[in-house]
Design a protein around this nucleic acid. Structure first.
Lengths: 222, 222
DNA sequence: AAGTGGTCTAGACCACCTT
DNA sequence: AGGTGGTCTAGACCACTTT
């Protein structure tokens, strides 16, 4: 009967699904479950914490552990470097810098990065020579000073040099105007997937719009 | 000098950022760090596991812990009930069932759910009376047998009754055809955000395409 | 005030994988 | 074959927050 934490997690999951522990109900405390399942409280804690991180349980000190009435599931989304992403699809990644200038920036860029001149980098990622993704990026000028984004994509340089910053992501859809259509080699009016991301550590770092060629999908698990 | 696991995590993070532990390098093993930082190996383990889950370290038995050369960050995505999502925006949620039929299903639906007749539910979610999201869902017939989706949306019923299944998500963009344009009250040709989700527990449950009205954003954190 | 989860210690054994 | 991370135990103290 002694169980490892994953077994405890699976058993708890079974009880939730089977409505032994119905939505809204409080479940037995860790000590009770540890006794029942023949393991220590630490093991139960690890299992229930895991479920809570996935949004399947709500835990509070003194308040106990409950099955949420309206669970908000959490999915995980992997954010690889674009070049790596293309390579994993078995295609040959390519990259071309389109422009790199200091500009005042629009309202959105300033909202994310603050006022003052911003570095605006426009670049195209290709897969087997075909347009894959347009990278429309704004940077706080101090961040990658002197870095030549003709050599390395800003995407890749940043992932390598600005580790563990906080990021906010947003998905949307966009209609290709003539400029986008030309850049991505697609018909004007095509529906394009847009992934917007703003990144900051202690100070704002970058705000980027990734605009993918038609048909592109971004996957998430769980 | 004794540190809790979050302090150990922050210190490790600092070393990664400062390149004391440069990309590709192997870091000291848990026992060494525990000694250096004045805590037990379990505490170090907890801290490093946390960083590894975020994609900032790679850990292997016997192989030790390394700073990845090309880190793949992981973001979390909250998936609320549509009605709740609308309410949180301060709008009045509405819902209308458009159709509910048994159909053979297309290739994608069959790939997700298996062959045989499938229940096809088409419904519209509204916010303050305006179209918000079209729910185009296929169900394994056994799942919600006898449930009237005119009363409750399939989205909501499923979250309440088939909780805690595994899911796979995929984002894409879609051009509004005439039928979609009419349903969502938008111009034909508009770019629409598409969120596809397939859900299964022990057996397949449902495959759904959520097609959002123009301009909609889906946010993710971290 | 007291119950519950959060975390730490010290020691141990095991599983996996690289060398 | 041996080193490294993965996990468990038993006991303890602490932090939070509800009663």
């Amino acid at each position: 009967m002694a169980m490892g934490w994953q077994e405890v997690r699976d058993e708890a999951l079974r009880r939730i699904r089977a409505r032994d522990w119905p939505p809204g109900a409080r479940i037995p405390d860790e000590a009770a479950l540890a006794g029942e399942l023949g393991c220590t409280r630490v093991t139960v804690n690890r299992a229930l914490r895991d479920l809570a991180e996935a949004g399947l349980l709500e835990r509070r000190r003194r308040g106990g552990t409950r099955v949420p009435l309206t669970p908000v599931r959490r999915a995980t989304l992997s954010i690889p470097i674009i070049r790596q992403d293309i390579a994993e699809r078995g295609q040959e990644p390519g990259y071309r810098l389109l422009s790199d200038r200091l500009e005042p920036g629009g309202a959105e860029a300033r909202a994310a990065l603050g006022d003052g001149p911003l570095r605006h980098v426009l670049a195209l990622h290709t897969a087997d020579g075909a347009p894959y993704c347009l990278e429309d990026r704004w940077l706080t000028p101090a961040v990658a000073e002197g870095v030549d984004f003709a050599e390395v994509s800003a995407n890749e340089w940043l992932v390598g040099h600005v580790t563990y910053a906080e990021a906010h992501l947003s998905f949307g859809a966009l209609t290709a105007d003539t400029a986008l259509a030309e850049a991505l080699d697609c018909p004007p009016g095509a529906a394009l997937l847009l992934l917007e991301r703003s990144t900051r550590a202690e100070t704002p770092i970058t705000w980027v719009r990734l605009i993918y060629a038609p048909g592109h999908r971004v996957d998430a698990g769980l």
